[in-house]
Amino acid sequence: MIYNYKMERGVSDKNILEDFTIKFCKIIEKHVKYIVVSGFVAISHGRSRSTEDIDMIIERISKDKFLQMHKDIINGGFQCIQSRLAEDIFEYLDKGDSIRYVKKGTFLPPEMEIKFAKDMLDELQIKNRRKFPFTGLDIWFSDIETNIAFKEELLKGDKDYKDADHLRFIYKDQINENLINEIKKMIKNLRLKEKNDKR
């Protein structure tokens, strides 16, 4: 056996990152449809790296609905690092920026980075969200093909390519290459075009 770490009896087999994410997602689930995307998808599939933030996309919701959700998040033991005023925090989201929550009483990662769905691509990801038994986590993720497409076409960092490769190896023979190519086309049209127009 390569790894021989003993697990204590009765102690959770979840690591700090998973524990944080599970607790947070349970709260969000009561209010809005969400997906966890990017690095955490690869990490929860056994990729041997960590991360400071977990990326979450949620459906666009009204201010009132957000205020209720934010109240629950705070009561659940988290705090937003940008402001203590819920109305200010909603403004960030509404303008297309992300909001970040950490555990109450700290300013250290892990942190949950939340964004509203911003276009058809995000809405599609939420519509096709999946749970992956392989991860052992009761969390909604965007599908594997979309994660690979984003990492290979838009993010393109060294860790992103490695994450994409990891997912490709894990789901070897199950991955729909045509779907990845379709999503990459959408990324080019919706995201890269927007990025180039801003320059």
């Binding site: 790894y3 697990m7 960590s50 490769d165």
Partner: peptide, 30 residues
């Protein structure tokens, strides 16, 4: 190395690789 590790994860039960991942991740935050 990514390929080796991914194959190990895919072909072995969670008990074999999950504790290593947990230790790595927990150590970063700790």
């Amino acid at each position: 190395q990514v390929e080796r590790w991914a194959n190990f994860v895919r072909d072995n039960p969670r008990e074999k690789w999950k504790p290593a991942i947990d230790a790595l991740i927990n150590s970063q935050y700790n």
